[in-house]
Amino acid sequence: MEETNLISKKELLEITGISYGQLYRWKRKKLIPEQWFIKKSSFTGQETFFPKEEILSRIEKIKTFKDDISLDELANIFSPNLSNISLEKKDVSEQNIVSQSILNLYNNIYPKIEKFSFNELLFMTIVDKFLISGLISLEEGSLILNTLKENYENFDGRYCDVVLIRKLGVAMCFLMLIPNELYIESKASLVLKVNAGECTEDLKSKLSL
């Protein structure tokens, strides 16, 4: 995630007007995901940063609803059991969860799958962002999809960036923990980097989770 997309804990508390105690209480209550607390080295030692748009939006929602429903009820809204989600192909298409292009691509690679889990929907959402950019081919989309299916669970819920680079016309895809810094050799070029955490929140919004 780029530095401009992060906000420090100090800035967050100043902007939102919440206290250190509130922030970490909401974390314990699972209103704010553990993976949003990003540790980075600084000249003072180590600082905590957050994905800026996601954390500001989440705190605004918490402040709006916390007087009407309990924190436990809020936690169920913000952190639903994603393992229970299963959507049929026709529902994904009718609800415009992802584009028809990625649905067709997924169907070509995995024709026997009739229902999609949350992770499968997330993988399609991520690849959709690559395809919509116009920077990749369908073959490269397949590469990204396979990379996600083979490796995403290794991150155990921690947010990562999905990166595609190209060298001499050959594409390579890999997943990187956030925060990260990417340096590539001069003969290779960065095609696109997509944040899986942002895609997760976008998907939850589409599914009204």
Rank of each mutant, 00 (worst) to 15 (best):
I85T: 03
Q22M: 07
Y106W: 10
K149Q: 14
D67S: 15
I178P: 04
S41Q: 12
K61Y: 12
V191L: 02
A171K: 02
N108T: 11
Y20K: 09
M124W: 10
L74S: 05
Q100R: 15
N195T: 08
L192C: 05
V163D: 04
M172K: 13
N154L: 14
K52T: 07
I97N: 03
I59G: 03
S99K: 05
K63I: 13
N5T: 14
E2L: 05
M172H: 14
K9A: 05
S8G: 02
I18N: 04
L6V: 06
E54N: 14
L103W: 06
I132M: 07
I55K: 04
I109N: 08
E181Q: 08
S117L: 05
L145N: 03
F43T: 14
G45C: 00
K39A: 13
S205E: 15
G141K: 01
F155P: 02
S101Y: 14
Y20S: 06
Q46V: 13
S142Y: 07
L103F: 09
F43P: 08
W36H: 01
E14K: 09
F123S: 11
K63C: 11
K149H: 12
L203V: 05
D128R: 06
F116N: 06
R58D: 05
L138D: 11
N119R: 11
F37C: 04
S57L: 14
I165F: 03
E53L: 15
R166Y: 06
V191I: 07
I132F: 08
L182R: 01
D68H: 15
M124P: 06
I184R: 00
S70F: 02
T64S: 14
T64Q: 14
G169Q: 00
F49E: 08
R25L: 07
L145F: 02
